[in-house]
Write a protein that binds this DNA or RNA. Structure first.
Lengths: 234, 234
DNA sequence: GTCGTAAGGTTTACGTTGTAAGGTAACCAT
DNA sequence: ATGGTTACCTTACAACGTAAACCTTACGAC
């Protein structure tokens, strides 16, 4: 009867699920660049080629971790219970998106993965389906809801590509000369920076609050959509 | 006197500029994946390692081509001459962004490059500086203009990350069973698709007009910003 | 029992990538 | 002439994704 349990340290059964879970952890810790088939195998106590028994190739790993994060998001937002009828749609959508954002902040590599994915993850599709449902509850026509999803874009999931980071340009130690030159070539940004540092001295660097800016942009869109909703339903 | 021009086919002087120009062309033709140091050198009639005399590494090439596209954009939008005073700011900003978009559509790899860049390209900084200038002309406070740049995000340059492509999910040949299952799991998207195909039969696939959706989202933001502008200036 | 089969894992190896190290040929001031 | 700089090439290497083949265990049929 003791024939079953013996040698003991049979390290790992190794499954598609375990592979993807490990992949997410690696990306969380070291970024996408750290996510290598060999490294992934090492973390699982196996060899690189063994992974190919559970995933077709690295691309499928990327698809898989995108979907895994999608599932994580859906688990969180499904637990939300916010009334969405009529004018309440806005709060419902807002809460949901900010909850999704919290998940994505734990996985900062996700935007880069989405950028390279052609097909859409089933979980992300599901997320959009529910979001569309909330808008329909709020009285959106199909057309308007459809436009809305496109208008939100990546913001629907809680992130947005930030191209504008004033500090990143003239970073670090700005000599007087360089700074003057910069102010001449970029008069408006220079004025903006001066205004800000005057307003809130000691914070010329890293003064952009990502969360605040995200919510500002989100509210701008949601308010605009609400106006269109009201206009179309009257 | 004829000592200078002799052997003739001295293939190329090879400069940083030529390197970047070739890099842009390769990315345009074959995507970012085709952009290899060896391929780049080959296109220039040189060897891979020769490139390192003009650029520090591949990362600098990517920085360089991003900046090159930025310059191309600035050349186009600088030629624009649209009045921006007062309420005219919106048309000015709109025209500028749509012009930038036209350039970016010729270089579809740019969003992916921006995603991986930490520091901001000088030309892109300049672009944002001018955009900010237009808003200031329109009467924006520094604070509002700053929020506006963040709210526009990548849309300021004419693109937006599309995560939502309904057709991409259940692509191709949908069997009746699969389709029914999909409709059950994604009732709202199914309803949307049905509505669309009813409205415009024969176009259940590839029915999203990117340009139209982009302009819708852009106008939504610009209209919202205009309202904030009017409220703050009254 | 034992044997065939197949699933799960490993070994080895190949082509491609970015790039470090060092060589070479041309030119230019001394 | 000569030494130094500038531009380019040759060789080489480590890391990557993954194809091909091989080993190993488990198990049902007989």
């Amino acid at each position: 009867m003791a024939a079953d349990a013996e040698v003991g340290p049979a390290r790992a059964p190794l499954s598609r699920d375990r592979v993807l879970r490990a992949a997410v952890r690696i990306a969380d810790d070291g970024g996408l660049g750290a996510l290598t088939m060999r490294r992934l195998a090492e973390d699982l106590g196996a060899e690189a080629m063994s992974l190919y028994y559970h995933v077709a190739n690295k691309d499928e790993v990327l698809d898989g971790i995108a979907d895994a994060v999608g599932r994580e998001i859906n688990e969180v937002v499904d637990a939300l219970d916010v009334p969405s009828a009529g004018p309440q749609w806005k709060q419902a959508v807002r809460r949901r998106i900010l909850a999704a954002r919290e998940v994505l902040l734990r996985h900062p590599w996700v935007p880069a993965v989405f950028e390279t994915r052609a097909a859409m993850s089933p979980e992300i599709l599901r997320y959009h389906d529910r979001l569309l449902g909330l808008m329909r509850d709020g009285g959106f026509s199909y057309d308007l809801a459809h436009h809305a999803l496109h208008a939100l874009g990546s913001r629907a999931l809680g992130f947005s590509q930030e191209l504008f980071t004033p500090a990143a340009g003239g970073g670090g130690a700005g000599d007087g000369d360089e700074l003057a030159d910069l102010a001449e070539r970029l008069p408006n940004l220079a004025g903006l920076l001066e205004h800000i540092s005057h307003d809130d001295p000691g914070s010329t660097l890293g003064w952009c609050d990502d969360q605040e800016e995200f919510e500002f942009g989100l509210d701008l869109l949601l308010d605009g959509l609400d106006r269109l909703r009201e206009r179309s339903s009257s």
